[in-house]
């Protein structure tokens, strides 16, 4: 079921690259979102992520979406077990945030944008 929606997926990944190109000079936040096919969870995760980034990191972030069904060999490098997983590559320390990113507070904590009270 997941594999049938590959076409749509390609669109999202192109979309994801657009802001990255535009704001090349001050990319301080390098984010990678690993998904497995075009599932409800992965779509939701990308929407949530964009929303958060636009609110908190406008102009200083890049998002790369990796579909593990199309590039399974990439799962090993970032030690991906759960999907969706958001990996904050930069700034260090590396952090993994798993789930559909629906809990904005926790995402912000995970991104070290907010400390946990």
């Amino acid at each position: 079921m997941k594999k049938t929606k590959v076409l749509k997926k390609a669109k999202t990944s192109r979309k994801a690259k657009t802001p990255r190109k535009a704001k090349t000079p001050k990319k301080l936040w390098e984010l990678r979102l690993y998904v497995a096919g075009q599932t409800e969870k992965s779509v939701l995760a990308l929407i949530n992520l964009k929303k958060i980034c636009e609110t908190h990191l406008q102009g200083v972030y890049s998002i790369e979406v990796i579909d593990l069904l199309r590039q399974p060999q990439l799962a090993k490098g970032d030690q991906i077990v759960a999907t969706p997983t958001l990996v904050k590559k930069l700034p260090v320390p590396v952090k993994r945030i798993i789930g559909d990113l629906s809990d904005t507070e926790r995402v912000l904590v995970g991104l070290n944008l907010k400390s946990l009270r």
Binding site: T83, T85, K95, R106, V107
Partner: peptide, 13 residues
């Protein structure tokens, strides 16, 4: 290194 927010599965595994 892991923070959990919302629904997920182990498709990565």
């Amino acid at each position: 290194e892991i923070e959990e927010t919302g629904e997920y599965d182990l498709e990565g595994l």
